[in-house]
Simulated scan of single mutants.
Amino acid sequence: MKLGLSLGYSRAHLDIPVALVQRAEALGYDSVWTAEAYGSDAVTPLAFLAAHTSRIKLGTGIMQLAARTPANAAMCAGTVDALAGGGRFIAGLGVSGPQIVEGWYGEPWGKPYYRMRDYVAIMRKIFRREEPVSHDGREISLPYTGEGAMGIGKPLKSILHMNPDIPIYLATSNEATVKLTAEIADGWLPLGFMPGSMAEYQPWLEEGFKRAGNGKSLQNFAIHASVHVEVCDDVAAGLAKLKPEVALYVGGMGHRKKNFHNDLMVRHGFGDAAARIQELYLAGRKDEAIAAVPDEWVDMKSLVGPAARILQRYRPWEDSGADSLSVRSRQPEAIELMAKAARLN
């Protein structure tokens, strides 16, 4: 099992824990991941970290599709990869949700399935520089010929000779998009993955590999899961620290009728709790929403408690079907403990 370090996105102030990332690199961590919502972007911190590290891979978890065109996403990936010395960047992509896409970026939600397919195809063409880039897609076309076009767009080839093999991972969760991920991407950033999840996802992945038709399989496809890690003596208190984020995502990160995190909780048998959390959160009763998050749900998705408990509960993650696991923590002791769990030293 390879380990990654997930830094997430900034809160009110940007704080990049350089020393923690350097320690993770020294311990043998394979990657570090940054995110974006509607504050700090995911790419710029990786350029900063590239200057302070030498080996660790630099992944976006994720770049939101609506935040930049596929050409700009490819430019960002190629630029940071070149700055880092080549072979270190992982372009993690995701659609976010309609509230952010339409409310923050001012872009139509459209058809995310086809947008992802077009987006990845265009990025790969740009990376490879085989010819000037054109693409006739259902959601994205180059050159643009839609409403308001002058009609003089010209296919272009990147001036920068990029790494042609920058890996692209997709963050997806439902059947159609997981199949698409297995078909067109190099890796998968599964939403809400935990031990036992592969029983549901593997048939979808296998169908996607079959569609790819190029010998693709679980042996040459990355599955990069993530887990909160909280080292503490009091398990209940540790779980309580993680509940505000669960309440935010399940209750408020999305519309009442369109919330992927809420849907995931329902699929795992916590439908009543998911409905109650959302009801309370959207009513402005955030403290009650947090209190309504079941301990069991948080514990399923996290590694919390004393070192011995975390080491014991790590083993099912090692056998989960994921080949990489991002540690979502800024606790130095958590970073050290997970290196021990994965036997990196």
Rank of each mutant, 00 (worst) to 15 (best):
K2D: 12
S6R: 06
S6I: 03
Y9I: 05
Y9N: 11
A12T: 13
V18E: 04
L20A: 08
L20M: 12
R23E: 15
A24P: 01
A24Q: 00
Y38R: 06
L49F: 11
G59C: 04
L65C: 03
A73E: 07
A77V: 02
V80Q: 01
A84K: 03
R88A: 00
R88T: 03
G92R: 15
G92S: 13
L93I: 10
G94E: 14
S96A: 15
K111N: 14
P112Q: 04
Y113H: 07
R115K: 14
M116I: 15
R117Q: 14
D118L: 02
A121N: 09
A121M: 05
M123W: 04
R124N: 13
K125S: 14
K125A: 15
E131A: 15
E139A: 06
P143E: 00
T145D: 06
G151V: 01
I152K: 09
P155V: 00
M162W: 05
K179V: 10
A182C: 00
D186K: 00
G196S: 04
S197Y: 05
A199S: 13
Y201R: 10
Q202I: 12
W204S: 01
E206R: 09
K210Y: 09
G213Q: 06
S217L: 00
F221M: 06
A222L: 09
I223E: 07
H224F: 08
C232Y: 02
D233H: 05
D233W: 03
V235N: 01
A236F: 08
A240Y: 10
K241A: 03
N259H: 00
N259V: 02
N262Y: 15
N262M: 14
D263V: 14
L282G: 13
L282Q: 13
A283D: 11
E288G: 06
D295E: 11
E296R: 01
W297F: 14
L303H: 00
I310L: 10
R313Y: 08
Y314P: 06
R315S: 08
E318D: 13
G321Q: 02
S324L: 12
S326K: 05
M338G: 03
M338Q: 05
L344P: 02
L344Q: 05
